[in-house]
Design a protein around this nucleic acid. Sequence first.
DNA 1: TAGATTGTTAATCGATTAACAATC
DNA 2: TAGATTGTTAATCGATTAACAATC
Lengths: 214, 214
Amino acid sequence: MGSKYISTSVIRRLPRYFRFLNSLKQTGMIRISSSELAERMGISASQIRQDLNCFGGFGQQGYGYNIEKLQAEIGKILGVDRGLKTVLIGAGNLGQTLAQSIEFEKRGFNIIGIFDKKEALFGEVLRGLPIRSADDLEDFCKENHVDAAILCIPFKEAAANIDSYVKTCGIRGFWNFSHYNINEKYPEVAVENVHFNDSLMTLCYRVINLDKKD
Amino acid sequence: MGSKYISTSVIRRLPRYFRFLNSLKQTGMIRISSSELAERMGISASQIRQDLNCFGGFGQQGYGYNIEKLQAEIGKILGVDRGLKTVLIGAGNLGQTLAQSIEFEKRGFNIIGIFDKKEALFGEVLRGLPIRSADDLEDFCKENHVDAAILCIPFKEAAANIDSYVKTCGIRGFWNFSHYNINEKYPEVAVENVHFNDSLMTLCYRVINLDKKD
DNA sequence: TAGATTGTTAATCGATTAACAATC
DNA sequence: TAGATTGTTAATCGATTAACAATC
């Protein structure tokens, strides 16, 4: 099953469909056509049908798509109920904020351990979990199968520990806030980089070039 | 000046060039060829030369590019020293974390005001600035020209106040963490959306489909 | 059945890569 | 001058859009 290669462009649109379908569902709507969904999302109906047909025929000719069913299908494709076993590495400002404000369970992740190297934090409870010493991470990963990590540590920390994370801990997915380029050394793991700085600079460019928009 | 339209793909790569050139500069290197930079960044030399030539000829045949000069040029294009006057709207968990951990001045932004609607926060100092009442935002924007806003508020708050931000306050750029789709109603302003959930779901998909990577 | 809308193939558009003449 | 590498044009590739036959 599921052997066809799907382009990054398509995959990146899936969460957006998921989000729109969710809000439509909440309004009580039952069905929607690709053209109406396209209208609402500001994209083309062709694109929607092409995207969905990468994964199968979820619609019905003459009718459209059942909103609830379609959302469920996309959720299944994305794996939102997989509960991937995940550790948070780095419980500083950002790590704490993410731990507290994101509904990981609804996005396919299950946080099972939180680690930091700062002694003062050990034992503090976040999201119902105690902050542990980063020194215990390898042991923890040997005892618990860990799928993914949220990396809220500085560049240098990431660079120094990536071998341990990938090779010793066996972690295969990284939500990476560290700016360290993990895929350069380990192209085989899944990495989702979040570059706040890049995002900000892009915004700056756009603001100062608003005149040439569209 | 600067009238040519530049595609989003190109713009999004500029901060990355900026970042790489910065680290090269710090190693003491003086010059680099497009092919060596390409090698290091994992992209093609053609792409680098194409991208740079959207903005002008920054290199020299037979020599390559001067690292410091090129970085300065890209910084100028991105506007990293523009110091856009910016307000932070929403000083909860996320807002506070961003305020404390991001070097806005180095990315073209200058935070001049912080606002929240939660009374308990008023007067608290963040980044050397007092948290003010969201009720005072409009007045503040009339007294101070404000270019951009960092929106760390919930969807509903954003939906309820966007008219004020754009029309009354005259804000033209948004670093948007609210999930509210600003461009749908105001296509004329610059928006950089940060969707943590989408990013997470993409990662989940990738982890569970690692077998079909590459 | 007639109308609507999908699934899918073909056409277009844009972005990336390759090639090479210009030139330092 | 010869060698290297850019700037830029042409070729390729992939993604988006358009079209339409299939079918509910």
